[in-house]
Design a protein around this nucleic acid. Structure first.
Lengths: 135, 135
DNA sequence: TAGCATTTGTCCGTATGTATA
DNA sequence: CTATACATACGGACAAATGCT
């Protein structure tokens, strides 16, 4: 498996596809560290910019997390608890903005599930923590 | 409203916050073009990289769309149609991966709403096009 | 405790490609 | 054809957080 710099599909997309398939196949299980950016850059003969962009793509898909001083790792998936919504609820999803995301201490790439109850109350859940059930 | 390069909050976050507030306040309505990257770079005395990163943040929040040759614009919000889900459905949300997103021709920053019906069928909707209703 | 190496984050500069008007 | 605008890709430099010695 390699990367073709002359392809019409951008280098960073090729690398993102490559890493994603490794994650989804289970070769890189949840919690496993990715190779460092410098290592990937060297290994595939591409710039660090392309590597960072590829990893950024995966972050915004919710597949990996990265923070300073630590290797980027495959995102552990939390257990999803079931939440029963009232009859007549309206349910929507959207991405949180920066403020909301930092306030709720959420990773990038995780949507918010919003439940509007008939009584007017609104509840918001990080989408990776819940499954809504319709009674 | 200005940007402080010596602040501990990154320049691109400051610019993203600034532009986001202009969008959410309605000063930049849906469909309106943002200033060009070069213009923003010059106007706030920051690098083009920081400008691009700020705009990328807003793209992944679903607030703007950008494509080659055209100014980045505030994302027009489509009408949300109501979809009634069967009783006993389980509802979850997640970000699409690159393949799915391109196949469904979705913008970046738009989650997918998944409805698992009791009969085993699964339906997926771009989250900005629908509101689910629980009967 | 202090120091060091590693890793990711931020920022800038330059160049080239590609779509649009 | 030209000018504008965004996309991709490379390079370098320094900052900040982490873990280990």
């Amino acid at each position: 498996m390699s990367i073709d710099p002359r392809s019409h599909t951008p280098v960073y997309v090729q690398l993102a596809d490559l890493l994603r398939s490794r994650i989804e196949s289970g070769e890189l299980p949840p919690g496993a560290p990715l190779e460092s950016e410098a290592r990937l850059s060297q290994e595939y003969g591409i710039g660090r910019d392309a590597v960072r962009k590829a990893i950024s793509v995966l972050r915004f898909e919710g597949l990996v997390t990265s923070s300073r001083g630590q290797p980027t790792q495959v995102r552990p998936r939390p257990e999803r608890r079931q939440v029963e919504v009232p009859r007549g609820s309206r349910i929507s999803a959207r991405m949180p903005n920066g403020h909301q995301r930092r306030q709720m201490d959420m990773d990038e790439g995780i949507p918010i599930l919003e439940v509007h109850s008939p009584d007017g109350t609104v509840q918001a859940f990080p989408a990776d923590e819940v499954v809504l059930t319709c009674p």
